[in-house]
Simulated assay, not measured.
Amino acid sequence: MWGIVPAAGQGTRIQPLAFSKELLPVGSRVDESGVERPRAVSEHLVERMVRGGADKILFVISPLKSDILRYYGGAFGTASVAYAVQERAAGLCDAIFRATPFVRPEEPVLVGLPDTVWFPEDALRELPDDRLSFLLFPVARPEFFDAVDTDAEGRVREIQVKRTGAATNWIWGAFKMPGATLHALRALWEARERQDEYIGTLVNAWIARGNEAWGVRAGRSYVDVGTLNGYREATQLLGGMAAQLPGSAGAEQGEGVA
């Protein structure tokens, strides 16, 4: 299974940085020698992809983001790591479809955003392998994201891209599909003259042509770390989750994260 990480964006909302935004330290991890070290924000996504079954990770990077290659090298845990280049930032669809030469039709594909932190960590396991499905999270301000309107069975009616007055507060944070669907979506994107910058508008066209997409409400907490305020929220979220671990002071006092 492939995990696709679109990481070619410029990160203008949180600049200036001296490195790629995907390497922004958010939280920490303990290395093989038992030393606690800062964790790059994109590690949260990659770790969740590996938990979700990915054994191959593809970073889509710009020519200026060689620091991501140096950071991850050729492997992350049990997963192999590869790279594709997006010469210029041309939207999420363009980035995702850079993966099509790597993906066989029978291989499932996971897609997530490398400047986000979300829980539960194993939520990607809830997504089926055989259909296009979105992992959904409840948020207070859905107009800042892509809200996913579903029917009672979870079938997607519409993805509302950064729309004021969205019909739902459930947004997508990651998605999964068969490799054959990835190739079919690329063919549709090209037939539409590559006009779709956002995956939401492309999926709406996909649905309008009689295809299906599904939403799975398995997410609990979601933070976009692409802004300074989001960075603060992610730090608070991770601190709250750490407080709930067995033996921590927060767990003993019953603290939690809203």
Results as ranks from 00 to 15, higher is better:
Glu106Cys: 11
Gly210Asp: 06
Leu69Gly: 00
Val257Ser: 11
Gly179Phe: 15
Ile171Ala: 01
Val46Cys: 07
Val216Ala: 08
Glu197Trp: 01
Asp196Pro: 01
Asn169Gln: 04
Ala218Arg: 00
Ser28Pro: 03
Leu188Ile: 06
Asp149Tyr: 07
Ala140Met: 09
Tyr83Glu: 00
Ser221Ala: 15
Glu190His: 13
Glu252Leu: 08
Asp196Asn: 08
Val257His: 13
Trp189Pro: 02
Leu64Arg: 13
Asn211Leu: 14
Asp55Val: 09
Val117Ile: 02
Ala54Cys: 04
Ala95Gly: 05
Ala251Gly: 10
Glu87Met: 07
Pro6Asp: 03
Asp115Met: 08
Met1Cys: 12
Arg51Trp: 04
Glu107Pro: 11
Leu69Pro: 04
Ala140Glu: 01
Tyr83Asn: 01
Pro38Cys: 14
Ser133Ile: 09
Ile96Lys: 01
Leu23His: 02
Lys65Asp: 10
Gly219Ser: 12
Tyr198Asp: 13
Ala251Glu: 02
Glu43Phe: 05
Val109Phe: 09
Val223His: 00
Trp172Met: 08
Thr100Leu: 11
Phe59Val: 03
Val35Met: 14
Phe59Asn: 04
Leu58Val: 15
Met1Gly: 14
Val50Met: 06
Leu132Glu: 12
Ser42Ile: 10
Thr150Ile: 10
Glu22Ile: 03
Val35Pro: 03
Glu197Asn: 06
Ile57Cys: 13
Leu24Ile: 06
Arg98Lys: 14
Gly11Phe: 12
Glu255Ile: 10
Gly240Cys: 11
Asp94Asn: 10
Ala99Ser: 11
Leu92Val: 11
Phe144Leu: 11
Val41Gln: 01
Lys176Tyr: 11
Ala40Gly: 08
Ser66Pro: 03
Val223Gln: 11
Gln15Cys: 07
Arg13Gly: 06
Gly74Asn: 11
Gly215Asp: 07
Asp94Leu: 13
Gln160Thr: 00
Ala7Ser: 04
Ser248Phe: 01
Phe59Leu: 14
Leu17Phe: 06
Asp122Thr: 02
Phe76Met: 03
Pro128Ile: 12
Lys21Leu: 05
Ala40Phe: 01
Leu182Gly: 07
